[in-house]
Nucleic acid binder design. Structure first.
Length: 533
RNA sequence: GGCCCCUUCGACUAGCGGUUAGGUCACCACCCUUUCAAGGUGGCGGCACGAGUUCGAAUCUCGUAGGGGUCACCA
């Protein structure tokens, strides 16, 4: 069988994760069987129509890598793919139903229907169209229609018995016909309703498998009745579980309770591969239990039978976890750097040094869950003039001696590679008989302005001699600059009490050199001189 | 409320008559360690309930409860 699936979104706003979800499964099933994945725009509600939405939804599918084979802007043999451009087709089939008696024109006004419902409510009767227009003689229907009287076209549905269909996952589902109330097929504005356009188009577009959200289960009998009235064969129905909010009741996913916009996740730095992977595990699982897998791997084995029916909660934590996995172990470094570049440029990257960029991304990615996290943590890599936190300030103050010593030592180091830097640090620690953290924390603070950052060795290697020296210099000079608040004296008056006695010499000899640098890069301006400024 | 669907750790799930009920996220502990991450090891935690079928039920049947969806000239 030549499989054809489809995604049929309405252009009413932000590209929705639910659309991506259903789209993914339709895509996977079609591709698994070498079939086609069709995109059809269900734009028959001109009240909610949003012109920008169509393109954004299409772009979403492209971004995700599950672009449709047919659709508006894509083309295909069964277009056009916007329902608003297929009105003639619906008209034609509506006429057929009118002629066969399967449908009829109904002339009740909105007000009359509202009154009917109010009445039903008052009596405690089930709500819904009571079929009052069914028996208006056809000639009269036609005369009134010809006279321009507003009306809808309704499907004539049976009152007794059940209408059943088979859902691939749930088996046979039978709904009492009493629940089905002559649904409107064509609205008074001439546009078809969802039910009608959907059936006509699925047929015209040769759709073999209707895979859609569970919310459509109860209206499937309407479609079945329509297929029968039109004398068409039924497609296979597969109803996917509804994505749920993480609230206590697990209600149907909604914008109010959760971010449902794919664009928004994209802006947050969620990768398309990760979103797809995450969505794939909502109700579906790999036969071998793998939880991290590519789209192609999914397609290769996709079997709707493995879809579980409980509505899965859309868990942001897990999405972010999956994204983190892609960031640090699935996608190659160059790829991540590529995608992070725009955000990094906003964070201060000047776009010049590709190797430096790669180093930065490499060291930051294990610490990030999203692309944006990388950018947010990268600030100190792009400028020497970063903010210094209070905590970092304390560490710098406590380690001034070490910083002064290291400034000198690093200025004499030839190669800034990992081994050399490690050796230098080790040697220093050994020679001074101090603990490593006593040296590393001040260094980290001086190099980044924070106390939570990559290893000092990595930082030194990546930053290189110039930056390292400038930063140590700046840190030291800020310490002295901060002093006047308490001790309005000269720069020479650094706190001796923090200094081990035996190191006075070393500090003194490095003094001249350090001071020179300090005057260059220190004192970066107001707001950086202390916690109280 | 009527109708329909669903029900395994807090979350995502594996399981399709016989398992010490497995994995992932989260959480906790420990290890590693140079802070933060990452990584490693371990732990906590579940078959909604009640009948029935069966030598044997998470798995099959029925009922109950709970949750969800749907009852438009929206999709």
């Amino acid at each position: 069988m030549n499989v054809v699936t489809r995604i049929a979104p309405s252009p009413t706003g932000d590209p929705h994760v639910g659309t991506a979800y259903v789209g993914l499964f339709n895509y996977a099933f079609a591709k698994r069987h070498g079939g086609r994945f069709v995109f059809r725009l269900e734009d028959t509600d001109r009240e909610r129509y949003d012109a920008a939405s169509e393109l954004r939804i299409l772009e979403m599918f492209e971004w995700l890598g599950i672009a449709p084979d047919e659709g508006p802007g894509v083309g295909g043999p069964n277009g056009p793919y916007r329902q608003s451009e297929r009105l003639d087709l619906y008209r034609e089939h509506a006429d057929r139903l009118l002629a066969s008696g399967g449908a009829y024109r109904a002339f009740e006004s909105e007000e009359e229907l509202a009154a009917m419902r109010a009445d039903q409510q008052r009596r405690g009767q089930p709500l819904g169209y009571d079929g009052r227009g069914r028996d208006v003689p056809v000639p009269e229907q036609e005369r009134r229609a010809a006279a321009g009287e507003p009306h809808v076209i309704r499907l004539r549905t049976p009152d007794d018995g059940d209408t059943a269909f088979v859902d691939l996952l749930r088996g046979q589902i039978a709904i009492p016909n009493a629940e089905i109330k002559d649904p409107v097929l064509v609205k008074s504005d001439g546009y078809p309703t969802y039910h009608f356009a959907n059936v006509v188009d699925d047929r015209a577009m040769e759709v073999t498998h209707v895979m859609r959200a569970e919310e459509w289960v109860t209206s499937t009998p309407i479609h079945v009745l329509l297929y029968r009235a039109l004398e068409w064969e039924l497609p296979v129905f597969i109803h996917l579980p509804l994505l749920r909010n993480p609230d206590a009741n697990k209600t149907k996913i909604s914008k109010r309770k959760l971010d449902t916009s794919v664009d928004s996740y994209r802006r947050q730095g969620i990768l398309p591969e990760a979103l797809l992977n995450f969505l794939a595990t909502m109700g579906w699982s790999m036969p071998d239990g793998r939880e991290i897998f590519t789209l192609d791997e999914m397609v290769a084995v996709f079997d709707p039978e493995r879809i579980s029916l409980g509505g899965p909660v859309f868990d942001l934590r897990k999405l972010r976890h999956v994204n983190a996995r892609y960031l640090r172990e699935i996608l190659p470094l160059e790829e991540i750097a590529d995608r992070a570049e725009p955000a990094l440029k906003e964070a201060g990257y000047d776009g010049d040094d590709e190797d430096y960029l790669l180093d930065v991304v490499d060291v930051l990615r294990p610490r990030a869950e999203t692309v944006n996290d990388i950018a947010e943590q990268s600030g100190y890599f792009w400028t020497d003039d970063f903010a210094i936190s209070d905590e970092a300030r304390k560490r710098i103050a406590a380690g001034q001696q070490a910083l002064e010593d290291l400034e000198r030592a690093f200025s004499m180091l030839d190669f800034f590679d990992e081994d050399a830097v490690d050796d230098l640090l080790d040697d220093y620690v050994r020679s001074r008989e101090i603990k490593k953290p006593q040296v590393l924390m001040p260094m980290r603070a001086a190099l980044t302005g924070t106390t939570q950052a990559p290893s000092v060795t990595d930082l030194v290697v990546i930053l290189g001699r110039e930056r390292v020296l400038r930063r140590i210099g700046r840190a030291l000079s800020e310490m002295t600059a901060a002093l006047p608040d308490d001790r309005p004296t000269s720069e020479e008056n650094r706190p001796e009490e923090n200094r081990p006695e035996e190191n006075v010499d070393a500090a003194a000899t490095s003094g001249a050199e350090s001071d020179a640098k300090r005057s260059g890069s220190g004192r970066s301006g107001p707001g950086r001189s202390g916690p109280d400024s």
